[in-house]
Design a protein around this nucleic acid. Sequence first.
DNA 1: CTCATTTTTGGAAGCGCTTCCATTATAGCA
DNA 2: TGCTATAATGGAAGCGCTTCCAAAAATGAG
Lengths: 355, 355
Amino acid sequence: MKNQLDRNAGNLTLDDIADLAGVSRSTVSRVVNEHTSVKKEVRQRVLNIIEEHHFHPNAAARTLALQRSWTIGLILPHSVSTFFTDPYYPNLLMGIAKACNLYNFTLALFLVSTKEDEANVFSRVGRKGFLDGVIVQSGHHGDQGAIGKMVDKKIPLVVVGRPFRSDNVTYVDIDNINAAKSAVTYLHKIGCKRIATITGPLDSTVGIDRLEGYRQAIKEQNGQVDDNLVVEGNFTETGGYLAMQKLLPFQPDGVFAASDVMAAGAMKAAEDANLSIPKDVSFIGFDDLPAASYGSNQLSTVRQKVAELGQKSVESLIEQIEDESIAPRQIILETELVIRQSCTQLLDISPQNIK
Amino acid sequence: MKNQLDRNAGNLTLDDIADLAGVSRSTVSRVVNEHTSVKKEVRQRVLNIIEEHHFHPNAAARTLALQRSWTIGLILPHSVSTFFTDPYYPNLLMGIAKACNLYNFTLALFLVSTKEDEANVFSRVGRKGFLDGVIVQSGHHGDQGAIGKMVDKKIPLVVVGRPFRSDNVTYVDIDNINAAKSAVTYLHKIGCKRIATITGPLDSTVGIDRLEGYRQAIKEQNGQVDDNLVVEGNFTETGGYLAMQKLLPFQPDGVFAASDVMAAGAMKAAEDANLSIPKDVSFIGFDDLPAASYGSNQLSTVRQKVAELGQKSVESLIEQIEDESIAPRQIILETELVIRQSCTQLLDISPQNIK
DNA sequence: CTCATTTTTGGAAGCGCTTCCATTATAGCA
DNA sequence: TGCTATAATGGAAGCGCTTCCAAAAATGAG
């Protein structure tokens, strides 16, 4: 034992500690795991030695014995362009990472861009003794495969954002349709007659739902949806800029963009075309990024608490990990319409005018 | 065995596969690990069964036996404000994640904000059987503790960004001093007489080094450093905006900002003060974010390849993991001055004018 | 058709931990 | 003081894998 000890100092095992404390391996294990059945003095003695030698039980051995790794996976199937361009992801990541810290879980991050990545990642994620559960950022058609596999393998799973096939899957999301609807309705109330929208990618549920909200709002105000006023964007600033350029010939006086980042691009395009905001055209974005709220032309937006989305998904996942029999459920978070200078002001802001 | 098999279908072990194939556990292990000493037909038979049952060896057991987890940790000691505000982090993350995919490593992400997090995270990171090595994003004084501990514990380590105490530590960085110097020198060459700088936080090596580059450039052009023209920023857009407001009274005609994000804020402030860019004041940023290069007022900048920084750090870490005797070394990546419309043009762009 | 080599294979130990079960020490009660 | 009930401990098996070592099978040379 001493031998072992010398051989790789600073790399003790339970046995080493047991020797040092003059007790058995089992007892040390009990101390580490806070079992009550250890005599006070013994417990203290062992604890001291552990402290003194900075002992940490080997993670792999623990995982093997307990079939629990205290690690959760986060799969971000990112279309490269938006990951480092739209603060949505970093925000989500922060929320998730913080929650992991809080509950003492480790976060394994998988950024998936190619088909190859996907196969690769899945072969690792599917492996036992590695992850206790998985969070998938979803919304694209392409994710269905991955999600299906998790469900089949009965790996505890939470999806962020409504997936295309949402039966039998726990997911966390906001009510995109109504959130979008309220923004467009607001534009109508302040007098916009030609309200345009720059949508998200229409192969994603977010894109589809926010457009649906726009449609519903227009129809409810007895309007016709004019296809010229609907342009598909891709959640990038450049995309917003280009989309706005397409819209300009049709002279919109209000624009609902499906993300703040696209709204920022669109506003630049409007300014470059010498339009004045909000006099000539009002803007509402979506997300409420920090950057939206300073400088001139502060952006009106639909606030969603992305970090909270992340936190809830972690919490819900942990629940599943701890009780595998929990039934799939949906968690829908609140959003809030935040009006700033990018919209002409509504004079009478009584409640019935806003919703 | 059959019993075992039924009990939890889809969760086979080596033994199960061995039974199914009519060979021993050892043989299956050899097949999985691609040892050559298995007879062709046997290997194929085993492979088929593995395929058929979607067998993946248990990760924890493997880690325990081999003392290798194929997982690396990334510690981002983020000051909350900049993580989801400056695309630097997402970019770095992307580079690292991609490299991990490439080499079939898993990435464990630790976002550290509070002291409590730090202790917490370290107790997990320091544990054996969990991570093969660690990448730390550094540059702040606060990181020294964490870095020191890794070094003490002999955990393979790569630091991104020059740490304050860089002896005995492998790190990956760019030459911030010279990069900043070349930007400021360029401003001088195009005729700016009152060149200001918005620095990064001055408790970070990036902040310090880029300021040092500014200083050196000014001095080399026989200038005096005017303290009124040096304002500390915090790598946020709002920070850039506020810093520029402080600079305006001193009428700078050229501004070097230590990040694109701050430059964007600063330009907004200039525009809000009715200055014209680049006629009244030229700007150079740092990073070359995608957003820098579109719309009006395209930003000149020092391009650094952040994703590559990430990739190199992974590669260097893997080298250390595979050969623990490798000596600490520094890897310095190239930067490039990219001139766009935010600077008045230099008519004669012959090489000697640029550097 | 032997016998010595070389390939292939199976058995068993070991990676470091948890936990069941049996055993010993302690306490409680008559 | 002796006996039972309880608290505290140690031993051993097991989590699922790799790999050393020895045994068995296949090969080739004489």
